[in-house]
Write a protein that binds this DNA or RNA. Structure first.
Lengths: 219, 219
DNA sequence: AAAATATTTGACCATTTGGTCAAGTTTTAT
DNA sequence: ATAAAACTTGACCAAATGGTCAAATATTTT
């Protein structure tokens, strides 16, 4: 057993300086995202998160103080990725390109970070008690500028008149996030097998085409 | 205080025979649907449900034994409404009518029974631990026949080729259920006001038109 | 009317929960 | 080298939880 201690020493030494905090925070955030995705804020326990992170429970509290604070940190960390995809929407002049890029990016996020999407879904479903501010400030502003873009495209007759631009946005959000939030259902209806990468790329293209046609654009 | 007892007697007497159980079960189911929608299975407490139902906690256990059993009963009761709307999809020959009717019915359900939709959403998000059987039997069968209908429409060139028919179905589900599951977000982005009945009818028509165009049909 | 059945309810309990704390260990700064 | 700061962790706690039970009340059956 003596050499085991030596091995541990060797393994631990390269882990240098202030990275300890960073590393552990990332481990805990990832574990928390997974657990919160499955059970929501109230349904998740700090012990579950600790076990998932393979750390003692006290450690979770040492880094994040309370469960609620950890939950907020998870939500915020998801928002960063969320906003990156969103920001591009208004940078394209042509609706075809804007929709293609944005829908594609949202589909990719659903694929790469399904737990994050689920945590957000849970939060909104339960009345967004922690995210009310962000929704009515940050998100509201982004949506307003999106709506303007869409309305301009309608005026320029680049897309058909969809009535309320929000309706189109909601369709895009709902459809793309469905592949993350309801991935289990998607799997069951795919004969119990998870979508392969190439299958997912197919669906992504199909979703893009559906959305394009829905506003009168020929894919 | 004597007449208060008399009043109670008078009020209670018309409540006849075996309706006691029926009445209470309905009250508890409604309360449970509301609470489960907000907090999920694990996050909800029997006390919350009891308070919402304005009954003592023991009463909930008397009628439904355990929290898990009550949860299952709620899910089943929602499924009934769900399936009613679903059954009609394959009764129409023309895709335009089938889509119009089905999307309309799903939107109406989102409006009239948002809590039910949320409970299902929560259940699927958390991996459908209680509904796995139903998903892979009942739902799978219905979806398969739906997919056939859609594929036939494609062959007859009544709608454009959407690739995998599932993609279209998911878009319909996701978009319509968005108005229930994310109603809080919809409200915030509607300047903090709930959608009025006439606003909702507008959105419903817009969703129908988007879906119709997405498969190449002119609304 | 009285026996049998169904409903109501408060008191109670073992378990689980989020969170604290202090004693130990490791890493960094001097 | 050694003091200071940061990290680790098991033991612990008050509050909340799902569920039980028996006694009281109401309803139905005979």
């Amino acid at each position: 057993m003596g050499n085991l201690t030596d091995a541990a020493k060797v393994r631990r030494s390269p882990r240098s300086k202030e990275t300890i905090r960073e590393e552990n925070e990332l481990i805990i955030l990832a574990a928390a995202e997974k657990v919160f995705a499955k059970h929501g804020l109230k349904g998740s326990t700090t012990k579950q998160i600790a076990d998932t992170a393979k750390l003692p429970k006290s450690n979770i509290h040492y880094y994040f103080y309370t469960k609620l604070n950890l939950y907020r940190c998870v939500l915020e960390s998801i928002l960063v990725d969320w906003m990156k995809a969103a920001d591009t929407f208004n940078t394209f002049d042509e609706p075809r390109e804007a929709i293609r890029y944005y829908v594609g990016a949202k589909m990719d996020l659903s694929r790469t970070r399904p737990f994050g999407s689920k945590v957000w879904a849970n939060e909104i479903i339960s009345g967004a008690p922690e995210m009310e501010e962000i929704l009515s400030s940050k998100l509201k502003k982004w949506v307003d500028s999106c709506v303007q873009s869409i309305n301009r495209w309608v005026e320029l007759e680049k897309i058909v008149n969809v009535g309320d631009a929000h309706t189109l946005l909601y369709m895009i959000w709902a459809t793309t996030q469905h592949y993350a939030d309801f991935d289990y259902q998607v799997m069951i209806l795919n004969n119990g097998k998870k979508l392969t990468d190439s299958e997912f790329e197919e669906k992504k293209q199909q979703v893009i085409d559906l959305v394009l046609r829905s506003v009168g654009l020929n894919p």
